[in-house]
Design a protein around this nucleic acid. Structure first.
Length: 149
DNA sequence: GCCAACGTTGGC
DNA sequence: GCCAACGTTGGC
């Protein structure tokens, strides 16, 4: 079963917010590479929930893919910050899916510590200049990160 | 707020 | 198809 890592700004959706909700829509992905990873996900895949653009960037917990992708409604909503003026109901290039809460780490696993782990040099997250918001995580990387909690 | 790095856009 | 200009991401 594949593993993933997805970034969210905690102001928008944090792991604790997801814990309260139980389930939420993962939307607003506006990068084709990230979108393609979204589309290759399967229900019940697990992913690390990463907090970005915040005082303590790092992995904050684990969540699960709750179903298949569907057209991202925020692309069609003129009120949404993710509105795409080139998208319409017939042709919406963007995908969203639902996710379920699994676990919140007691402490956020900081990006700086992830960078220090030699087992994670191949992870897109810690590579120089990488801005990918959805990425695959290998089994070995998954286990290495779990062991750092 | 700064800025490096990357992705996208659009003129040619 | 090239590439300069611009916009965005995201850590610091």
């Amino acid at each position: 079963m594949p593993y993933w890592l997805m970034k969210s700004e905690p102001d928008e959706l944090s792991i604790h917010h997801l814990q309260k909700l139980g389930r939420a829509r993962w939307d607003g992905v506006r990068n084709y590479q990230a979108r393609n990873f979204l589309r290759s996900m399967q229900e019940s895949d697990l992913f690390f929930f990463y907090h970005s653009s915040c005082p303590e960037p790092g992995i904050a917990g684990i969540a699960r893919i709750a179903g298949p992708t569907y057209p991202d409604p925020t692309a069609l909503d003129p009120q949404s910050p993710y509105h795409d003026p080139k998208a319409n109901a017939e042709k919406n290039p963007w995908s969203a899916l639902d996710v379920e809460f699994v676990e919140a780490f007691e402490q956020v696993l900081p990006l700086a510590r992830l960078r220090d782990n030699p087992a994670l040099v191949g992870l897109s997250l810690v590579q120089r200049g990488s801005r990918l918001s959805v990425m695959p995580v290998s089994e070995a990387q998954w286990q290495a990160i779990l062991a750092m909690r």
